[in-house]
Amino acid sequence: MTPSYKERFENLLRVVKKVTSSLDPGDILEVIRDEAKVTVPYAKEACLLMFDPEAKYYTRPLHCSLSKERINCQLCKKGGEHIQKALKDPVAFECAPQSSASAGPICEVAFPIWDGGGKPLAVLDVISDDKNGFHPKDIVLLKDLTDLATNAILNARRHWKLSQERLTLDSILKHIRPFVPDTVNRILEKDPFTPVLDKKEADVSVLFLDVASYTKISERLTREKVNFVLEKYFSSFLDEINHHGGDINETAGDGLMAIFQGQESENGLNACKAALHIRERTLEINRELEGRFQPVHVNMGINSGIAYLGMTRFQGETGTRMTFTASGPVTNLAARIASAAKRGDILIGPETARRVEGEIPLFDRGLMKFKNVKDKVKVYSLVGPGPRKNT
């Protein structure tokens, strides 16, 4: 007697309701295993034997659902003749006599579960009690259950693989993120699929920072000590730049470039405040390291105006390299102004001075001539007259 479509539907519906109540692959596979005994009420034992070598990653070990007097040994069953036969036949079925003369035959049915590529994922193995064998109805219902188990296992594997890919991607991003400017991180978080990274005109203030006499420092100290000194100072610089809304987009050993975006009335002031606080932190660290290291002088230059902001692409035969930066005359002049600063000075261009006048004291340094700049430029300092020593 074969089951009606209604019976098959109701049996699967009962299982599906339980399966869909959990997202845990282990729970789902245990439900399917247990439902094999519910489907065949007189079944003595039901096992979902996992052959997928990756099963240990997406589900916990599955014990057999069986009577307490039988041995629960998945390894023993996997190597059994009947299970091995099931891996060759669509459905393996046999009734074998028990050793006891008074007992009836043990009937065992095994359904292989494949991955679609011919590799075994699992075997659903069910053993009847001593008095009842398996009826055609049982075979059909268990086959339906096997089909459901196949989808459940394949979905569990896909979910695990996607989770692994996500973990791998997150790990990669975790290591890459410190190398990427915060502005780029924010753009990608806002729209990771179609980020707008093309260059566009934007009002910015650009700050260049340089550690004076870096060559002498590197010659005088060991590599380990040079690295310690730079990390000590630059870590504090990073905090101040971030605190004032800046974004470090380039570093080069003894220097860095930071971009301050925002309203014209704000970015220049933020850049100047960051520079002044960097100077204060430099003085503090010089005092902290006094007697161990020579004091460090940090020179800075700031310029404001319209720059070309976005990703610069360098495309060669071996690949593409991209860097987020602000380019154009405003940036070039900021770099020139920074190169003119000596012994811990902070020099700013005329546009930056205009924006912060009345907010921060300015000290006129007069007109300066810079390389590749046609006219002389009016330069101001944020550091007062007199000796400028970072001690």
Rank of each mutant, 00 (worst) to 15 (best):
F9I: 06
E10H: 04
N11A: 02
V16T: 11
K17T: 06
S21V: 03
D24R: 10
P25H: 09
R33Q: 08
A36V: 04
A36M: 14
E45K: 13
A46T: 02
L49G: 05
M50K: 06
D52L: 04
P53H: 10
S65I: 08
S65N: 07
L66V: 07
I71T: 13
I71S: 09
N72I: 00
N72Q: 05
G80H: 07
H82G: 08
L87Q: 10
A96P: 01
P97K: 14
P97Y: 09
P97C: 12
S100F: 15
S102D: 12
A103R: 14
A103L: 15
G104Y: 04
P105L: 14
C107F: 06
V109E: 01
V109R: 00
P112F: 01
G116Q: 12
K119C: 09
L124Y: 00
D125V: 00
G133R: 01
H135P: 00
I139N: 02
V140P: 03
L141S: 07
L141T: 07
K143R: 14
D144W: 07
D144F: 08
A149W: 01
A156G: 12
R157E: 05
L162K: 10
Q164E: 15
L169C: 06
D170G: 02
D170R: 13
D170N: 15
K174H: 14
T183V: 14
V184C: 04
V184Q: 11
L188R: 04
K190M: 05
F193R: 13
F193P: 00
L197E: 06
D198R: 08
K200L: 05
A202S: 15
A202I: 03
V204N: 01
L207E: 01
V211K: 03
A212H: 06
T215E: 10
S218C: 15
R220P: 02
R223C: 01
N227F: 15
F228C: 05
F237P: 06
E240C: 13
N242H: 06
G246E: 04
G246C: 07
D247W: 05
A252N: 08
A252P: 06
I259E: 02
Q261A: 13
Q261G: 15
E266A: 12
G268A: 10
A274T: 00
A275E: 08
H277V: 00
R279S: 03
E284G: 09
R292H: 06
R292D: 13
F293K: 03
V296Q: 08
V296A: 11
V296C: 09
N299F: 01
N299Q: 01
M300C: 01
G301M: 04
G301Q: 07
G301P: 04
N303V: 03
N303Y: 11
I306G: 05
A307Y: 04
T312I: 15
F314T: 13
T318D: 13
S327H: 07
S327A: 14
S327W: 00
T331P: 02
T331W: 07
L333I: 14
A334H: 00
R336S: 06
I337F: 05
A338L: 00
K342R: 13
R343S: 14
D345M: 12
D345T: 05
I346F: 10
L347E: 03
G349W: 00
T352R: 10
E359A: 14
F363D: 04
V379E: 02
S381F: 03
V383H: 04
K389P: 02
